[in-house]
Design a protein around this nucleic acid. Structure first.
Lengths: 160, 160
DNA sequence: CGAGTTAGTTGGAAAATCCAACTAACTCGG
DNA sequence: CCGAGTTAGTTGGATTTTCCAACTAACTCG
């Protein structure tokens, strides 16, 4: 029997991690979303706080918008000006930012002082990721392949 | 009073999200880690399964190694050949991959069939992220800035 | 010996990013 | 009304990163 983790005599793995990275994995995308998560919505401020060059940032914001992750909200008529806000989809990027921040603050502690994060209860960021179904914590290694899925829902008999 | 989320009259925000992205945010890095998480450890296979070009992949693996995220394990003497394995730090990237996969499988469902993921209990991937301290679930918006931190530990009186 | 495997390396083309300066369309103080 | 300031971009050209296909090295196996 073929172990599904080996795969790919064909092409690269088409999986949801790869798909997510196509949208969120481009440079500056997650940092722009971080800003909006923290309540910063204006172009200039996002550019300043992320360090992205303005031309690239325009591109990213347009891509994120076209994928429905953020939306432009007009806040001035004359001249027409827009703010960038998270959609529901964008707000749900938070767990990714949280895990990233948590990993980083555990493993990337060098001399440079950096802003840390915390939960709204006041505690230091220590997220626990658990399975909604069985309630057990996700341990490294408890991530496994499921079936192939497309628009319709659970689809196609995985592989034979 | 100055809202800490506005920040940056100075430079870009130095935070742990940005720091983490410096290591994990480069192209192919997370996909390479995905492979190792799933038990694929050989160069050729990682290259094939991710789709990364071999030269770039070599660079990424070296970077990840130099940051202690992965390590090379010799599996052949003659010729000397190495496998790539996750370190503890690397294994703890799993929550990031999990949140990414979960976000993506919720929001990126188009026609293309993709491999989904599941928890080892067999259930579809539905991770819940909660605060280790208070136990409450992280909701979008419950991520906030904490103090500045450097190597020593909790450090510097944030800002004045 | 010749074919196959594995992990790279190489050179040159293509794409993405950076940067500083510039534009457009306004507001506001004097 | 004029000149300075604000905001959100756009532009052109340099720099960096990535891609790609082919090539090498050091073996093993039949």
């Amino acid at each position: 029997m073929k172990n599904s983790a080996d795969q790919a005599a064909d092409g690269p793995r088409a999986c949801f991690i790869a798909a997510g990275l196509e949208v969120l994995g481009e440079r500056w995308a997650l940092l722009a979303l971080r800003e909006m998560s923290l309540g910063v919505h204006r172009f200039d401020q996002i550019a300043r706080n992320t360090g992205a060059s303005r031309d690239i940032l325009v591109g990213r914001l347009r891509t994120l918008e076209s994928h429905g992750v953020i939306e432009r909200v007009q806040y001035s008529e004359r001249p027409p000006r827009y703010e960038y806000h998270l959609t529901t989809s964008g707000a749900e990027v938070a767990p990714i930012l949280i895990s990233l921040a948590a990993w980083s603050s555990t493993w990337m502690r060098d001399e440079t002082p950096r802003a840390s994060y915390r939960h709204s209860c006041g505690a230091d960021l220590k997220p626990v990721v658990s399975c909604a179904e069985c309630g057990d914590e996700f341990t490294p290694g408890s991530l496994m392949f499921g079936p192939l899925v497309s628009a319709a829902g659970t689809d196609s008999a995985s592989e034979q």
